[in-house]
Simulated assay, not measured.
Amino acid sequence: MGDLSEIGGTGRLPVRIEVFSYLRDHVFESAAVFPAVESMQLLARAARGLESGLDVATLLDAAFGKFLVVGEEEKVIEAFVEFENLGDDRVSAALNTRMRVSGSAMTRTREHARVCFVRSGMISENPEVPAFAESETEMQVPAEDVYRELVPMGPKYQNLAGSVQLCPAGALSEIRAPDVGEADGPLGSPFALDAAFHAACVWGQRYCGFIGFPVGFARRHVIRPTAPGGKYAARVLPAGSERVENIFNLWIFQPGNRVFEVVRGLCMRDVSGGRKNPPAWIRREQ
């Protein structure tokens, strides 16, 4: 590991990603891909051992680059984390792999996820969850319909519960995090945030006519980690839209305004190049 004490200091940490069976339920266009929520968990674990004052519960400027495809026979993925001291009490961490260039002995580095962690006490948040009146709901989509037709994930990633309530002002849904011990870590259960991404995807399919995939966010603050087997709710509010990109703020919470985490500036983008489109029944008449 390099010395990060100076601005511009860098370091590299090899990591071996064990391909647990549940990871194969996270799919995109029929291929298993390593989830963004798992990449953040891995980076937080690595950063936690970097220096004692680093706050791994606050993540800034996340970018999820190239998909990390999980091969059908792959049991372990060899990867590495690159750290850089950016100054302003921020440390950048990126998850990378090397791939062989077809027809040659050369290799190329691929970046799959990058976040910035901050030093303790730099950022704090005690947010209120925006109110959601049931009278605003104009459509309710049962979770089974979401996973059958809108977000085709395998069983371990089908964690929206009940129905997703939709209106132009946002989405609200219950979440149940499965009790998968291997998935637990410093950021809590990854399944809760992943399910909140699904609610944002459903909102985008109805009101914007495209299937969005998380490609980054401005800030994530884990106030208290979600737990395996826990029950939560997700509130998703749109904060901007372009032709193939939506921006959201989201909250994961329990009754009584007990907030577990907040994500600001979540970017959901059509990464299929227009190959995939929402079914007609979910789209709102424009």
Rank of each mutant, 00 (worst) to 15 (best):
C201P: 02
F210P: 00
V56I: 07
A218C: 09
G9M: 04
C267I: 11
R224I: 08
A161L: 09
K75G: 12
L50M: 12
R220W: 04
D184S: 12
E84Q: 12
V56L: 06
L266W: 02
E6F: 14
M1Y: 13
E128C: 13
A94P: 04
V151C: 11
G162I: 03
Q41N: 13
V19R: 04
R98H: 11
P190G: 03
Q165G: 09
E138M: 12
I252D: 04
R176L: 12
A177N: 07
V70Q: 03
E18G: 15
G265E: 05
A199T: 04
R114V: 05
N246E: 14
E242R: 15
S39E: 07
G65T: 03
A161T: 12
L59I: 04
F253Q: 03
R45Y: 07
P35N: 06
M106F: 14
G273I: 13
P127T: 09
N85I: 04
Y157S: 03
K75D: 10
I247M: 13
V151T: 02
P238F: 03
A63E: 10
F197D: 00
L4I: 09
N85W: 03
M99E: 15
Q158G: 06
V259R: 07
P14R: 02
A31K: 14
F67H: 12
R110Q: 12
S104K: 09
D3A: 13
R119V: 05
T226L: 04
G185P: 02
Y147E: 08
F210T: 02
T109F: 10
A234Q: 00
Y207H: 10
I175R: 00
G212V: 06
E285H: 13
H26T: 07
A36P: 03
E51P: 09
A218T: 11
G181K: 14
M106E: 15
V271D: 07
A192V: 02
V222M: 09
G121Y: 08
P279W: 08
R108E: 15
R283G: 07
D55K: 05
H198E: 09
A105W: 12
I223F: 05
A94K: 01
T109G: 11
E261H: 11
V15M: 05
H221K: 13
A79T: 01
G209V: 05
S5K: 13
A105T: 14
D89S: 11
F20C: 15
V263E: 00
F197Y: 10
F20I: 15
T58G: 03
R224E: 11
S189A: 08
E125W: 14
Q286C: 14
S135D: 14
E182R: 02
M40V: 07
A32L: 11
F213V: 08
M1R: 14
M139P: 02
P142F: 00
V271H: 06
P228R: 02
D179P: 01
V37I: 10
V202H: 06
A234Y: 06
G204I: 01
Y157E: 01
V33M: 05
E73V: 09
L266N: 01
A200F: 01
D184H: 10
P186D: 04
R108M: 14
V164T: 08
E285Y: 11
K75N: 13
L95V: 00
A161P: 01
A143C: 07
